[in-house]
Design a protein around this nucleic acid. Sequence first.
DNA 1: ACATTACATTCCGATATAGGAATATGTCAA
DNA 2: TTGACATATTCCTATATCGGAATGTAATGT
Lengths: 127, 127
Amino acid sequence: MARASTTSDAFNAVAEPRRREILSYLAGSERPVGEIVAALGLEQPSVSKHLRVLRDVGLVRMRCVGRQKLYQTNAAAIRPLHEWAGTFERYWQHQLNRVKERAEAMARQGPVFNSPEPNPNLKSKEK
Amino acid sequence: MARASTTSDAFNAVAEPRRREILSYLAGSERPVGEIVAALGLEQPSVSKHLRVLRDVGLVRMRCVGRQKLYQTNAAAIRPLHEWAGTFERYWQHQLNRVKERAEAMARQGPVFNSPEPNPNLKSKEK
DNA sequence: ACATTACATTCCGATATAGGAATATGTCAA
DNA sequence: TTGACATATTCCTATATCGGAATGTAATGT
């Protein structure tokens, strides 16, 4: 089996950086394809293909006006992603607290003198 | 060019549903590989391969204890994802407000009798 | 009708995947 | 040492991608 289709869900669709850029660009207001091409400096067919993927998973909405098609981000479709990531919030806060506590404990134990070459692998110097 | 590597960033890594399951399972506490295999009902090599990807992008941390390796989700690495999705929050709230306003406007105008089959394609009834 | 504009789709090629099977590595135990 | 256990890696194949080039399609202007 290969990797899941980009159109299988929002997670796969936003894995592509350009698609994320497009979503950000189209978040506030609807824009024709040409403006996306100009603004992001991509090839037109490339933009069309990305928009197709985004449309298939419901991340953008399209409206025809004359010969142009106006796209806009359907922000609600990004919510599940936000919520999934949010389920980890309490855990990263936990970790941050641990780092903070460790730093404070070390500070109480007295200052540490500089080593000549700060070694990024040594985490002993935080704070 | 093909699709970006799953190890290129967290967005690509979490595109795979099983990897999301693994991250959720390992969020609270560290677990050996065997438990993940048992809990999620996957093949052991498959789990090892997913863990490799997650480790490469920093989404999990590993610690060796005897002959087993304990993995735990590095929740902080999920934060960028949460924050990116969060930049769209005001937009989906906007959309929700519009829906709400429309509903209230309709309520003020008096109750509408049920149409036999609510057709989602008909947008002609707003206001 | 014809040219032009605005997009979408198709065809191509290189690459990266995920699962399955088999195998390799590393650690503990007798 | 030998063997059992825990995990990782390799090899394989089918598939799906992304970009680029070329082409298709639909609406507008003259």
